[in-house]
């Protein structure tokens, strides 16, 4: 009885979570362009998608922004997490506190303050400012993620390596980074997710020629969305879903292995 209630509840919540996505996928195969009633099955929106240059450009920009900002923030974040863990310097506490600001502050405040500074510095709004802003809010998440792994690392390992004559560079690239890999990867994944999801900060810091998918969809929601957007969303979700499933299966195998041994 109790189990049944629990299961029904889970189903209901998952329904709530997947309903909006499911409708979008469904309507990507709809013959009517109005997204109101399902009238018949078609794939011609997928063909339209290939013709829609505005949309493809927005997708391209989104991927560039997400890719570059994930890579850069993962590199800087990893280096910084290690630096903050290992070294002390004047003002370290202040730096530590400030790092949490992008995590907790409402995004709109970060968005307008970055916009103001770009205006102050006479930086032209575009891809560069957009990527800078994304790097800005991704780095702290990478640092937090890497640091949580660093705390569990035995500091003696580095000492031993040093005694054995390994150079600092060797120690960092061959010992520290591999040990931190789980934290680095989850930090990178987080950064990628945040960058792909962001609307608010992009809204303020994008400029001509740096239209991203969310911004494009935002203006299209107001003027009317064509189902080729649904088609694009469906494809993206498909890719994400496959990637997630692969990673889950890998992790499940590990859980099972651990359970056996």
């Amino acid at each position: 009885m109790k189990k049944a209630v629990e299961n029904i509840y889970l189903v209901l919540i998952f329904l709530f979570l997947f309903l909006p996505i499911a409708v979008l996928i469904l309507f990507s195969f709809n013959t009517s362009s109005l997204n109101i009633v399902f009238e018949g099955f078609t794939v011609h929106w997928y063909k339209d998608l290939l013709q829609n240059r505005t949309l493809l450009e927005a997708l391209f920009n989104t991927l560039i922004v997400a890719g570059v900002s994930t890579i850069v923030s993962t590199i800087i974040g990893t280096i910084s997490a290690y630096g903050l863990h290992k070294y002390s310097f004047p003002g370290k506490n202040v730096v530590n506190e400030l790092l949490y600001i992008p995590v907790v502050i409402p995004e709109i405040v970060l968005g307008i303050s970055l916009l103001s500074v770009y205006t102050l510095l006479k930086l032209e709004l575009g891809m560069v400012t957009l990527i800078l802003s994304h790097i800005c809010f991704c780095i702290p998440f990478v640092i937090i993620s890497v640091r949580s792994v660093l705390e569990g690392v035995d500091p003696h390992i580095e000492e031993v390596a040093n005694d054995l004559g390994a150079s600092k560079f060797q120690i960092f690239t061959k010992i520290v980074i591999p040990m931190l890999m789980p934290g680095i990867l989850s930090g990178a994944q987080l950064a990628l997710t945040l960058s792909l999801d962001d609307v608010v900060i992009s809204y303020f810091t994008a400029g001509p020629g740096s239209n991203t998918l969310p911004l494009q969809v935002y203006s299209m929601i107001k003027t009317g969305i064509t189902p080729d957007v649904n088609a694009l969303i469906t494809i993206m979700l498909g890719v994400v879903f496959v990637l997630l499933m692969v990673s889950t299966v890998v992790q499940l195998r590990r859980i099972k292995k651990e359970a056996i041994s």
Binding site: L17, L24, V199, V240, F241
Partner: peptide
């Protein structure tokens, strides 16, 4: 899974 699409797309 739903949160790997953009939040604006979900609002749509």
């Amino acid at each position: 899974v739903p949160f790997l699409t953009n939040s604006l797309i979900r609002m749509y």
